[in-house]
Design a protein around this nucleic acid. Structure first.
Length: 438
RNA sequence: GCGGUCAUAGCUCAGUUGGUUAGAGCACAAGAUUGUGAAUCUUGGGGUCGCGGGUUCGAGUCCCGUUGGCCGCCCCA
């Protein structure tokens, strides 16, 4: 065995694994639909330039990319955002606003495997296009929260950390920093939680030692964990009209989430900035409360990206939930679904003559939507009853020669082990009666 | 790309200082059992001991390499 394995980082889904995955997707789909999002899909294989245009050349090392037989440079999609920007950009003029779309798709990244991260994974992507106001963020954060709650996860299990790159830019700008320094400092802020002071090393080697006063201000700002603290930090310095307007956006967002009853899932946290990326405003990440797992989901506003990829100016916000960390969390909280493949009906069949009689009923019952199972080969009755019980079926139909001679079939309740005889001529009515109750 | 750690049946594992034909439990299958279920007993299929090389009379065991898993670093769109 094992002469052929899956490629590193790729996964086989045995039936019990696929059942869990399918359950997660089904709940995500239902939830997104309830929020008025509609589903789309895009090709797995895209032009390599699509990702270079968005993220630059350096991401190429993280892609499954190759040259196809038509000499085109292509890549397996590592994310959905550029593709969905293309779709929306192409029809931006004719799509009703707001555009609320979602997808559930598999992605591929050439990375080293770790807990919660492989080379292939699924994501729920949800985006709102065409709404520049923070109403779009309300909608998305609410959907993100519900996509977790729908599985039974509570505020004790996960939360959403909410931050704002716009305010970071205003704040750092108000401290007199130029664009290059601001970009490097945002990177440092992003890494500070994991690396501590080491996160500032790249900045120090590029721009010299960080003045103690500036560093203290930075650490204070990234330590902000409430809107009140945010207001205080900004109001005290230079409450420019732009900052005042931005704080109003924050009030709208937090107020909307509070009205939805979601405040306990949301934590203001300026320590989140989400790398360099393409984010332009609010950014947010979902984590497990215990802090044992990597991020569950991430998202934010990217108002410039549709235009950057050749489309019109179109404001956009979105997030993605990955399936791997999410599954781990469900598993650890004991919320992974118990999926049953049990049939409704198990047919116990005497011999070949009885089998021919049973086949008609089996076909009728299956056509009527019942899940019906029977032994493919002739098997001793004792085995069949055991198989019927093991299958998890609620009821067994017993096709014996004695019964059929009298024009009946035995219907056995596998739970309480009671039996009764029912007319062989209309099994479907009897089975239907059994499942619909007295 | 870097570091740590592990690898024996589908799963969990045992395997003595290196010693004859590599074992157990669970699971699966058949039988005991030609009409009634969670039990018992018997039997069976399944392993190139991850792969390759080396040391040795002899390697699952020791050495080297390699592949893969897991954990962490870098990265994380």
């Amino acid at each position: 065995m094992a002469s052929f394995q899956t490629l590193p980082g790729f996964r086989d889904f045995y039936p019990e694994d696929l059942a869990k995955r399918t359950h997660i997707f089904r709940v995500w789909r239902q939830t997104a639909a309830a929020f008025g999002f509609v589903e789309y899909d895009t090709p797995v294989l895209e032009p390599l330039d699509l990702y270079r245009a968005k993220s630059g050349d350096e991401i190429e090392g993280q892609l499954f990319s190759f040259t196809d037989k038509g000499d085109r440079q292509v890549a397996l999609r590592p994310e959905m955002t550029p593709s969905v920007c293309r779709l929306v950009g192409e029809r931006a003029g004719s799509l009703k606003r707001p555009i609320k779309w979602f997808s559930i798709a598999e992605f591929y990244r050439y990375e080293r495997m770790q807990r919660g991260r492989g080379r292939c994974f699924f994501q729920l992507n949800a985006d709102v296009f065409g709404e520049a106001g923070s109403e779009a963020e309300i909608e998305l954060v609410a959907l993100l929260v519900q996509c977790h709650r729908a599985f039974g996860l509570t505020e004790a299990d996960f939360y959403v950390r909410l931050s704002d790159r716009t305010l970071w830019l205003h704040y750092l700008g108000s401290l007199g920093l130029d664009e290059g320094r601001i970009r490097m400092l945002l990177t440092a802020v992003d890494r500070f939680e994991k690396q501590g002071d080491d996160a500032f090393a790249p900045y120090v080697s590029a721009h010299g030692e960080l003045p103690a006063e500036l560093k203290a201000k930075l650490l204070a700002f990234l330590g902000i964990r409430s809107f009140e603290a945010l207001e205080a930090a900004l109001g005290g310095t230079a409450a420019t009209p732009a900052i005042a307007a931005r704080l109003a956006d924050w009030r709208k967002l937090l107020g909307g989430l509070e009205s939805m009853g979601l405040s306990r899932f949301v934590q203001v946290d300026l320590g989140v900035v989400r790398g360099l990326a393409y984010y332009t405003g609010f950014v947010f990440e979902a984590f497990d409360r215990k802090g044992e797992l990597r991020a569950l989901a991430g998202g934010g506003r990217y108002d410039d990206l549709v235009a950057k990829l050749g489309g019109p100016d179109l404001p956009a916000v979105g997030f993605a939930i990955g399936d791997m960390t999410f599954s781990l969390l469900l598993q650890e909280r004991g919320l992974a679904p118990q999926i049953s493949h049990a049939p409704d009906v198990y047919c116990v069949i005497g011999g070949e003559a009885e089998r021919r009689a049973a086949f008609g009923d089996i076909q009728r019952l299956r056509t009527a939507g019942f899940k019906v199972e029977y032994p493919l080969r002739e098997v001793a009755f004792g085995k069949q009853f055991k198989a019927a019980a093991d299958s998890g079926a609620k009821v067994a139909l017993i096709y014996g020669s004695d019964e059929l001679a009298r024009g009946v079939v035995k219907l056995r309740d596998l739970a309480d082990r009671t039996e009764r005889e029912v007319p062989a001529a209309d099994i479907e009515a009897s089975v239907r009666g059994f499942f619909e109750g007295p």
